[in-house]
């Protein structure tokens, strides 16, 4: 079943790369984009978002802070941090927040693996 995915990244190029990967991997899913944490939270409040993919290094609220805020209202939503910052602390913090981690430069393989897991989890939640 198609899901609605929110892409959060301050870089338009990064959102384009992500959207392009989706067209190859999950062309039937719908995408929404946000360029910062505030816009992301507004989109979340709309209630239509199933999965969120979030850049770490953004001006203002960073991706991990954003995930922490999302977790307050969406404890089980499949969420991943997408970043070239592969330091243990970043990946470890993502895990603590029950979020996945997808390294940049983005590959179709890494994105596809996360999305398969996310789709399985969502199917369990909403039979």
């Amino acid at each position: 079943m198609p899901y609605q995915v929110l892409i959060v990244d301050d870089s338009k190029l990064a959102r384009m790369v992500m959207a392009s990967a989706f067209r190859r991997i999950r062309p039937e899913w719908s995408l929404a984009e946000a360029a910062n944490a505030d816009d992301a939270l507004t989109a979340m409040a709309g209630g239509a978002v199933d999965i969120a993919l979030i850049d770490f290094n953004m001006p203002g609220t960073d991706g991990l802070e954003l995930v922490a805020r999302i977790r307050k209202t969406h404890p089980a939503m499949p969420v991943a941090i997408v970043s070239a910052n592969v330091q243990n602390e970043i990946i470890g913090r993502a895990r603590e927040l029950n979020a996945g981690f997808i390294p940049k430069p983005l590959t179709d393989e890494a994105l596809a693996a996360f999305l398969s897991g996310a789709a399985l989890r969502l199917r369990k939640v909403t039979p």
Partner: peptide, 20 residues
């Protein structure tokens, strides 16, 4: 400019892990 910043960010973020 966006593309350059993003590409540089990937480069530096990866490199930061080496420093880490």
């Amino acid at each position: 400019q966006d593309a350059l910043a993003e590409i540089a960010n990937m480069g530096v973020s990866r490199a930061a892990n080496s420093l880490r």
